[in-house]
Amino acid sequence: MCIYGVAGNSFVGYVTANSGKILQLSLEHCLLVVVAVLIAIVVGISLGILISYYDVLAPAILYVCQIIMTIPSLALFGLFLPLFGIGFKTGVITLVLYCLLPVVRNTYVGIAEIDPSIIEAARGMGMNEASIMTKIKLPLAWPIIMAGIRTAVVMVVGIAAIASVVGAGGLGVFIFRGISQWNINAVLVGAIFVSLLAIVFDQVLKLVENRSQV
C-alpha cells in the first residue's frame, strides 16, 4: 500500500485513478468519526446530566475536559499508543476524549439554562425525576446539546486525519504517505477531502441544529 496507482502528474488524473482508495479511506475516516462521536454523545451527555445534579462536580469535570482539549492531538494519540496499541481502538479512544468538552459543557449549560418555573411546574404535576429529565430537561436543552455535538464532529474530522499516525487509517494516510514519498497529489487529495468532509459535516449538522430549534 505504498503508492496508489501512478497516473501521470495531473491532480484530476490522480483522483480518478485512485477513486476507489479515496472512497475507502473516506469511509474509514467517517467510521472513526461516527463511532467516536456516538460514544462521546453517550458518555458526554451522561456526564453532563450527572454534573447538572451535582453542581460541586461541575467545575472539576469541565476543567479536566478543557485540559484534554488543550493537549496537542498528536501527543494524546502518542500517549494512548502504548496502552491500546496500534490501530482503530487508539484512534477512537483519543477522538472520544476530544469530543467530551463540547458535549459535556453544552449538556450542562443547556440544562442549567432552563427556566426553573417549567421544572417546578412539572414537579408540581407529579412527574418523577426520570421523566422530568427525559420529557422536559433533555428536549428543552437539545438545541444547545446539538450545537455542542456539531462543534465536536467538526473538530474530530480534523483530528481523525492525524489518527493514521497510530495506524487507525482514514484520509490522513494520503497526507502522511504523500509527504514522506513526496507525492504532491496524494497530499492534496488528503487535505482537500478532509476539508470537504469537515465542511459537509458542519453544514449538514447545522441544518439538523436549526430544525431542532423550531
Binding site: G158, V187, L188, S195, I199
Partner: peptide, 17 residues
C-alpha cells in the same frame, strides 16, 4: 467561519504542496 472548519493538518499539507 467555513475556513475554520478546515482541519489544521490540511492547511499544513496544502502549504507543503
Amino acid at each position: 467561519n467555513v475556513a475554520q472548519t478546515v482541519p489544521s493538518i490540511a492547511i499544513l499539507a496544502l502549504f507543503f504542496t
